[in-house]
Design a protein around this nucleic acid. Structure first.
Length: 456
RNA sequence: GGAGACGUGGCCGAGAGGCUGAAGGCGGCGGUUUGCUAAACCGUUAUAGGGUUGUAAAGCCCUAUCGAGGGUUCGAAUCCCUCCGUCUCCGCCA
């Protein structure tokens, strides 16, 4: 969420930031909305001021037993009140018009985010390890070929239960996914200083607004509706529920399924004033994530790369403005460490301004090597959001000796995507006989199993 | 799911249609006194928005806010409704 006052101070800088994302200038239009809003507020406040003053005079007139004066004043207030609803409506409409626009504009890129339009302009900043070597004659398989051949990965049965973009893992492969999550959480909590969180995965509108999934990315999300009177046949299970009221945030019976634990963990500090001596806060959680993948039709339709439901270990930091940039590097290194210990080849790229997500000021993607696809695939994305989300959440901090509060800075990163890590381990540790070696770092979590073989 | 109680500033807590942006206490900040510390005493201490003066720091005026949103009223922390949240008892449940 952008600050209309700083936009007022420097509209050119705002438009320049949007231009770096490949977007049209918006400042002039927003400032016009802001002027309209201020005019509407002034008109309303003028009416309120007179009403309040007259009402006090009525009290005084009644006290000195002057009914004539009181009645005259009542008539005046009555007239003012006639006009008030229109003024109130105009004022809140003007505010809403501005907020609607501001809430749907992405964050301004940091000065050191690379220039560029799309993924082709991203900048590789480092690379670790190298691709695994296979015998010349051996063509590495993709993870779903391996998993299905092992009898431990079943997309067909999952489709019977839930449709496309779901999977059933079995036996040692199910355990491998569990092992990966445990390993990552243990690493981040015991060595990287993150506090483990087990958050709700169902959240309300405000939380989704806070991290900016709402209002713009509504269509990418799943909702959970509590159906109170479920007796009109199965069709009603998916019937559109009626929220009704004018208040935007009043539903208790509808939730959103989190698309990432970032939503839950970042919103833990919403509407709070934090002591800056306690920053940065570092949280990690391994949760299920739910994404509608709207607009991804036809992409990654096979396999586990792009599912409606997947597991991810997420990292979130809450910092002061001064700490944010360094924390971003640190967080990215924490995510990279996961891949290093798993012995996976990866590269880290800085996303260009045109390719970054909505809330980000600067983003590093970590891409892991997948031999079956013969290419790098995103497995983690670490972003600094500045005060963009903090404004939406009203999350502030205060220095020990300061009077004023200021917005915190928020960061989030995958540390890392568990489903994709499973894919990476399978493809990188496959052997010609179709079995999969278990990386050293995971063996303790696998009860000592060092190889995953075909189920009998 | 049923029944009931409650939600007031950083915290505790009064207030039950106008004199209340809100008593009192704690805490914070500034000061006086004081070998030091402590104590005592005095003062001060919400947030957001709009307007205005000023280069600025800041000041002044106004509006809104007593969980949130509506309503009644000339006037609402106070009365009514809805929602959110907390607590108690019962029921159900992993």
């Amino acid at each position: 969420m952008h600050d209309i006052r700083s936009l007022r101070d420097d509209p050119a800088a705002f438009d320049a930031g949007l231009a770096r994302r490949g977007l049209e200038p918006r400042a002039a239009e927003l400032l016009a909305l802001d002027d309209a809003r201020k005019a509407a507020i002034a008109a309303l406040q003028q009416a309120q001021e007179r009403r309040n003053a007259a009402s006090k005079e009525i009290g005084a007139a009644v006290a000195r037993k002057d009914p004539g004066a009181a009645d005259a004043l009542k008539a005046e207030v009555g007239a003012i009140k006639q006009a008030m609803p229109a003024l109130e409506a105009a004022s809140s409409a003007a505010q809403a018009a501005l907020d609607l626009e501001l809430a749907a504009i992405p964050n301004i890129p940091a000065t050191d985010a690379p220039e560029g339009r799309d993924e082709n302009d991203n900048v590789e900043v480092r690379r670790h390890g190298e691709p695994p070597r296979f015998a010349n004659s051996f063509k590495p398989k993709e993870h779903f070929e391996l998993g299905e051949a092992l009898g431990l990965m079943d997309f067909e049965t999952a489709a019977k239960l839930s449709g496309a973009r779901f999977v059933i893992l079995k036996g040692a492969l199910a355990r491998l996914e569990r092992a990966l999550m445990q390993f990552m959480l243990d690493l981040h909590t015991t060595e990287h200083g993150y506090t483990e969180i087990n958050p709700p995965v169902l959240v309300r509108d405000e939380a989704m607004f806070g991290t900016a999934q709402l209002p713009k990315f509504r269509g990418d999300q799943f909702r959970a509706i509590r159906q109170l009177d479920y007796n009109e046949g199965f069709g009603s299970a998916v019937a559109e529920s009626n929220t009704g009221g004018a208040q935007p945030f009043q539903s208790t019976k509808e939730f959103w399924l989190i698309p990432t634990a970032e939503v839950a963990m970042t919103n833990m500090v919403r509407e709070q004033i934090l002591d800056e001596r306690k920053l940065p806060l570092r949280f990690t959680a391994g949760t299920l994530c739910f994404r509608a993948e709207a607009g991804a039709a036809g992409r990654d339709t096979r396999g586990m790369i792009r599912q409606h439901q997947f597991e991810k270990v997420e990292l979130v930091s809450i910092t002061t403005p001064e700490q944010a940039a360094e924390e971003h590097e640190r967080m990215t290194a924490c995510a990279e460490e996961v891949l290093k210990r798993l012995g996976l080849h990866f590269r880290t790229v800085a996303l260009c301004a045109g390719d970054m997500g909505f809330s980000a000021r600067k983003t590093y993607d970590i891409e892991v090597w997948l031999p079956g696809q013969n290419r790098f695939r995103e497995i983690s994305s670490c972003s600094v959001c500045g005060d963009f989300q903090a404004r939406r959440m009203n999350a502030r901090s205060k220095a020990a000796d300061a009077k004023a509060t200021r917005f915190v800075h928020t960061l989030n990163g995958s540390g890392v995507a568990v489903g994709r890590a499973l894919v990476a381990v399978m493809e990188n540790y496959q052997t010609p006989d179709g079995s999969i070696e278990v990386p050293e770092a995971l063996r303790a979590y696998m009860g000592g199993i060092d190889r995953i073989v075909k189920a009998n």
